[in-house]
Amino acid sequence: MFVFIALALRSKSKNQNPRRHFRRAGIAFVTGLALFFVTVAVTDEVEEPVDQTASADEDTEEVTEEATEEETAEESKEDAEEEEAEKEKEESIEAEKEASIEAAEREKEESIEAEKEASIEAKEESIEKAEAEKEKSIEEAEAKAEAEEEPVEEPVASKEGLIPVSLYRVVDGDTVNVIDDSGEELKLRLLLIDTPETVHPNKPVEPYGKEASARLTELLNAADQLYIEYDSGDKTDHYDRHLVYLYADDVSVHEVLLKEGLARVGYIYEQQRYLSEFRAAEQYAKDRQLGIWSIPGYVNEGGEGFNSEEPEAEPETTSEPATNETSPSEGNGETEYFQNCTELKKVYPDGVSSDHAAYQPKMDRDKDNWACE
């Protein structure tokens, strides 16, 4: 177009016809303009595939970028999920580890506690077993010692001289009623001992009298079998009481009462089989001031009985050990006087009754109308 314009201008400069000049210039302009559009059109057609390819490349790049971004996002998500899973796995492993440690510690503590309890139980069982074995050993040793000390004998009931009886009632500390095998009631007076009075009609209850009766009752009630034993000499006294030694099983109740200070040795006549043993038991209580020996002057050691009341005034006596005087109250008109029971027993070992010429009330301390029994 510029070329045609230049040619038009050139034509003008050569003084050509102006009309012709403008016609040529118009044709040149139109021709140039047409060529311009043709050129532009061709250029667009040529460049259009290139633009489509570029666009396709751009689209591909965009898709690729989007795919890459999606893949990156997915990879990030997967990485995050993997990290989360790894974290959860680690937490799970840690939790399992802690749980395992706690369980192991708990099991260990339980095991230690169980072992401790088992050890304590085993120790207690061992102690009990040792104690049982010790007791058994002691019992065996005692049984062996008894077997060595004493020959094997038949039961007490079959011993010669011992008669089985059953308890009927306890009167006082030295008097008991029993029933023999035939069903007969026997009133017993225990030999060689004397206990304080509790049932005497003319005397108050004396110290340790009730204790002696209670102890005798306890011994007799606790025994499986009672036995009586007679000594040489008379079997009964003037009250028809059987003069015996009494046993609760194989225990002498005489020795128990004497050793505990609830009785004294007394009324020593011809029956003296166990006098030395009884004296030893009495001395044991006396040395320790047990029972009746705990009261100074209570036991009448110069005679019989106990000093529970003021002694009666003794009548005047002659220097002769025995004299005869006439007394209208005596049937035979004679009366014998002795200074004390010791002197009287030299003549009358069993004592005398109230109707005897030698009887004196002062010598009948238990007021049973029998002096120095």
Rank of each mutant, 00 (worst) to 15 (best):
A322N: 14
G209H: 05
Q52R: 15
A85E: 06
F2Q: 07
S76V: 12
K144Q: 07
R189K: 07
F2D: 09
N202D: 14
V265P: 00
Y348I: 01
T323F: 04
I163M: 07
E83Q: 14
P296M: 01
K123R: 15
E110P: 03
E90S: 11
E65Q: 13
E84R: 12
K77R: 10
A118K: 12
K345D: 01
R20L: 14
E309I: 05
E90W: 03
R279I: 08
D240N: 11
E105I: 12
F4H: 12
E74T: 05
S158G: 00
A143C: 01
V30E: 06
Y284R: 12
S55N: 10
S158D: 08
E334A: 04
L9E: 06
T326F: 15
Q225R: 06
Y269K: 14
E270Q: 13
V40H: 09
E107Q: 13
S213Q: 13
I127K: 10
A147S: 09
V171F: 04
I179M: 07
N307T: 00
N221D: 14
G183C: 02
S213A: 15
Q52W: 05
F306R: 02
P328D: 15
V251D: 05
G173P: 09
Q272L: 00
S119P: 00
K116L: 12
E117Q: 15
H21K: 11
T335Q: 06
T72W: 08
A122M: 03
N340G: 01
Y247M: 02
E336P: 00
Y208S: 01
E125C: 02
I27D: 11
G333E: 02
T318F: 06
D51Q: 10
A85D: 10
K203R: 13
E260A: 04
A95I: 10
S252C: 00
P18I: 14
T317N: 12
K77G: 13
S126M: 06
D234I: 01
Y269P: 01
S232D: 15
H200S: 14
V253M: 08
E154P: 03
I193V: 01
F2A: 13
E98A: 15
K203T: 03
D231E: 13
A25T: 10
E330N: 08
A145I: 02
D249Y: 06
G173M: 08
L275G: 05
T318M: 05
E86W: 09
T195R: 00
A132E: 14
P204G: 14
P296V: 07
I120C: 03
T323Q: 09
L167A: 09
D366R: 03
E66W: 10
Q283G: 08
S294T: 04
D231I: 02
D57K: 11
H356A: 14
E82T: 15
E62M: 09
E343Y: 05
I228M: 05
Y227I: 08
A85C: 03
P201C: 07
E90D: 08
I5W: 10
E206K: 11
D350E: 13
E74N: 08
P311E: 04
I101T: 12
S319V: 13
E301A: 00
K77I: 12
L9I: 11
V352I: 00
S126G: 05
T53H: 03
E121G: 09
A132P: 01
D174V: 04
F338Y: 15
A34F: 12
K286Y: 00
L7M: 11
D51A: 11
